[in-house]
Design a protein around this nucleic acid. Sequence first.
DNA 1: CTTCCACGGGAACACTGGGGTG
DNA 2: CACCCCAGTGTTCCCGTGGAAG
Length: 411
Amino acid sequence: MEKGTITIRGIFEDMLTILNIFENRDVLRSTYTPDYLPHRSDQVRALATVLVSALRGETPSNVLIYGKTGTGKTAVAKHVGQELVRTGELYGIPCVVIYINCEVVDTQYRLLASLARHFDREVPMTGWPTDQVYSEFKNALDSDKRIAIIMLDEVDKLTYKGDDVLYNLTRINSDLKKAKVSLIGITNDLKFTEFLDPRVRSSLGEEEIIFPPYDANQLRDILQERAKMAFKEGVLEETVIPLCAAYAAQEHGDARRALDLLRVSGEIAERAKSAKVLEAHVKHAQEKIEIDRIVEVVKTLPTQSKLVLLSAVLLCYDGNITTGEAYNIYKQMCRIIGIEVLTQRRVTDLISELDMMGILNATVVSKGRYGRTKEISLSVPIDSTRKVLFEDYRLKPLEEYRPPSQTKLYA
DNA sequence: CTTCCACGGGAACACTGGGGTG
DNA sequence: CACCCCAGTGTTCCCGTGGAAG
């Protein structure tokens, strides 16, 4: 098509005739839970072995599940949970499985509130004292004889501020007359227990199940399995799946990543009106996913963090950045656009947060006589980051701003 | 050995959005 | 209605500390 000209007539027909290479793309999304989990039978069996005591009327041990992201922890836990409830109904043994993602429900109050709500108790979003919510939940739970399995996904997100809830939950059984509770903690932080109250640690970790990362071959099996459902017959070039598997295996064997990669590759192929998904599309997809991730993260940053990041971006042209320099630039920019200036203490925290998100790298170095500082370097493409930052209307006025050129102390 | 700068832990505070009670 | 209580979040304030250049 000629540049700049577009025929409106027939545009939809044109689009509809694009070869649809997907059969059902939803099976490649992370929200989809498959019925069959390849290479996880050991973990399924281990978990089932612990939980089976529920069906014998005993309280199962608490379980702690470890494994990096995308190793199937959540899928296995949910599956075994469903199966337990189903079998329980069959035998007339009431089992309840409550799944809670602690990344969303990340405070004591909210956790207890959602537990209570699970038993149809009305608990306001905020306002009550925590122990009131606790007893509300306890009473609701104890109103019948049953075994409740509470699955706490990403428990590590919960614990960094007060593990009181965990402590209370591990001891709740002594307060209960009819019901019994057992906990399943799921975490991708292998060092998670180190920060835990020792009493909680021993109780929560009665049983431990480890999910090792998938290797490239296993990822290939998983992809093959899903690709059968997701794509039309024969639209994948043979090397596509092995390539996706290989890329994802590099990223600590993340199956979610592998599936995303395959899906995006397909979407790119589709848009390119290709009849087949080719190797080149996968490479394309790999880049796109990374860029999208960064853009998304940067875009949703709070203004203050954006400003801190911007000062790093502006400074990074001349090599190493120290906190002091960055903070000066940051201060000036705050004044220009008229927003409140935060203290340096706070800004170092923001920098650490950015570091944790993988947007920049900050390492503490001691410069001897010249004190101690954090050396910052960007770990994302500079120009695209800049562009994304300036999309924020509050930062717009700074587009023309140039930091005063630093006269180098060391020349 | 001193000296320097910022790191980073912890307490304290302000503020928000909600509750219950008189 | 006014008033005080509560959890949660973001921030400031205070301060002890690391560690190599000088």
